[in-house]
Design a protein around this nucleic acid. Structure first.
Length: 479
RNA sequence: GGCGCCGUAGCCAAGUGGUAAGGCCGCGGACUGCAAAUCCGCUAUCCAUCGGUUCGAUUCCGAUCGGCGCCUCCA
């Protein structure tokens, strides 16, 4: 029988940590707000996707099946702004759609490359908004039929007043919203300033779709409700996104979906915190952002970035720094070195001391208690590091047996299925390097230190670092 | 104005009503032909400040100071 470990998460709706109890036992349905593909994602954006991957991998490792839907927003104000500039004023609607698609296809590819580089598992389904305009129009129509939406001059708006629960996610009341700083007063045709747009009437020089309300395009919020319900159904277990989406995006999704369904749609809303730079929110307008490519240019592995992010709790603000990345790199090396030590072939056989098993069991228990408690990664990692210290010291005193090492490796694999940062590394080298290592060993055996050091330096310049061991054997690793 | 979050060693960071996990850096040591790498050991009488509750508070309550977020662009 498959073991399913309990996982609890902080639910923005209740502001409490609650156990995840999927509607379909054993299978968790997750909807994640994905990227708007008009530019490279910056590492602040990527933190959110890393958090979603952490959640998904934790559920998988805990024994659940996961059906994960992440949308790609490929029609939106900034996309239109950046894609239509080259077109003549009299361009056809078809040409405008093509220009928009060219831009979004390009950045979708870059986005997928980023996910891959950070070892983020691909979503089960990745719907593009422009492929689901039909269901969006249907949902809007259904809301109009229920009196929750109204048409004005070719646009359709959601009637907040008709949905009493509005504000439940962001914990805002109507009065709080009214004193908000930036209600768009240009939208004079709306019944209430807070009513939000479901369908935007066509404006000049924009790509449009036909609709019962005339040509136009969907509002931003409707795509997630429509695609989420179409792909995952009427009951979704977990919906994720960055904290900034709590209001208005997710609040509006609730109004749309639950307004149409007449019952709760999402059980648990989970939000990841921001990445800061020098104490300020990372954003394109401030110019204080980095892309994953920037980090790679500075010599950092995307997986190091992954680890740096995941070694902090997902609901805590992180102040990004290259010093922090370097520290992450060093602590990652410690885990990887331990893994190599456990993988080493140990000659001979001897009795087990029986001391490693209880430590390993404690580490596993502590690890899962931490992960199950709202993905407490700092504490989960502490369990791993404690095990590493304990077993290194134990192995120094009395060498662990093959069986003990294998049990430890199983735990490292289990935890790596979540963190994806300390995998087994295949020990294969090309013949030239093998020959250099052999030549250097021979020089060393004959105490030809000058030649030995020269070969060692040569290998180093080729990215291979040698490790001389106590028993006279020579190990290596990539720089 | 409304709704929230945060302040723990040089840096990052977890945590609990009963007396401070873990990582990085640093220092000392082991190993080594020398290195590198690795390993071992050490490193907060104290958890922003001031009060209160309590047998006991870093942990609960209140106030103060400081930092931050959201209140219809936003991961």
């Amino acid at each position: 029988m498959r073991i399913i470990r309990p996982i609890s998460l902080f639910n923005t709706l209740s502001r409490k940590i609650e156990p995840i109890i999927p509607v379909t036992p054993g299978e968790v349905k997750i909807y994640s707000c994905g990227p708007t593909v008009y530019n490279f994602a910056h590492i602040g954006n990527l933190r959110t996707f890393l958090f979603q991957d952490l959640l998904k991998r934790t559920l998988l490792a805990a024994g659940y099946q996961v059906r994960h839907c992440m949308n790609v927003t490929d029609v939106e104000d900034k996309i239109i702004r950046d894609s239509q500039g080259e077109l003549p004023e009299d361009a056809t609607n078809e040409a405008r759609h093509e220009a928009m698609k060219a831009l979004t296809d390009k950045y979708t590819v870059f986005f997928l490359e980023d996910l891959d580089a950070m070892r983020i598992l691909p979503p089960s389904v990745m719907p593009k908004a422009t492929d689901h305009i039909g269901p969006m129009k249907d949902l809007i129509q259904s809301l109009m039929d229920k009196g929750l939406a109204y048409e004005r001059e070719g646009s359709v708006y959601y009637r907040i007043a008709g949905f009493p629960a509005y504000g439940c996610l962001a914990h805002l009341d109507r009065e709080g919203m009214q004193s908000g700083a930036s209600v768009d007063m240009d939208e004079y045709e709306k019944d209430q300033a807070q009513d939000f747009v479901l369908w935007k009437a066509a404006k000049p020089f924009e790509p449009t779709w036909d609709s019962p309300w005339g040509p136009g395009r969907p509002g931003w919020h409707i795509e997630c409700s429509a695609m989420g319900m179409e792909i995952l159904g009427d009951r979704v277990d977990i919906h994720t996104g960055g904290v900034d989406l709590v209001f208005p995006h997710h609040e509006n999704e609730i109004a749309q979906s639950e307004g149409a369904l007449g019952h709760p749609w999402v059980s648990t809303w989970v939000h990841g915190e921001f990445l800061m730079v020098e104490g300020e929110k990372m954003s394109k307008s401030l110019g204080n952002f980095f892309t994953l490519r920037d980090l790679v240019e500075k010599g950092f592995d995307p997986v190091t970035f992954r680890y740096a992010i995941q070694s902090n709790h997902y609901r805590k603000l992180i102040n990004f720094s290259f010093e922090g990345l370097k520290a992450a790199d060093h602590s990652l090396k410690r885990i990887r070195a331990f893994r190599r030590r456990m993988e080493e072939v140990v000659p001979g056989t001897w009795e087990e001391t029986g001391e490693s098993a209880p430590r390993l069991e404690k580490a596993r228990t502590d690890f899962w208690a931490a992960m199950g408690d709202d993905l407490n990664t700092p504490e989960a990692l502490a369990a791993i590091f404690t095990l590493i210290s304990d077993l290194n010291a134990l192995d120094d005193r009395v060498a662990l047996t093959r069986k003990e090492r294998d049990a430890v490796l199983e735990f490292l694999d289990e935890t790596d299925s979540i963190f994806s940062a300390w995998p087994h590394e295949a020990a294969s080298l090309d013949a030239e390097i093998e020959a250099l290592i052999a030549a250097r060993k021979e020089a060393r055996d004959t105490k030809n230190w000058a030649e030995s050091d020269r070969l060692r330096d040569q290998l180093k310049s080729m990215g291979i670092i040698l490790e001389d061991r106590k028993d006279g054997s020579v190990g290596w690793r990539k720089a």
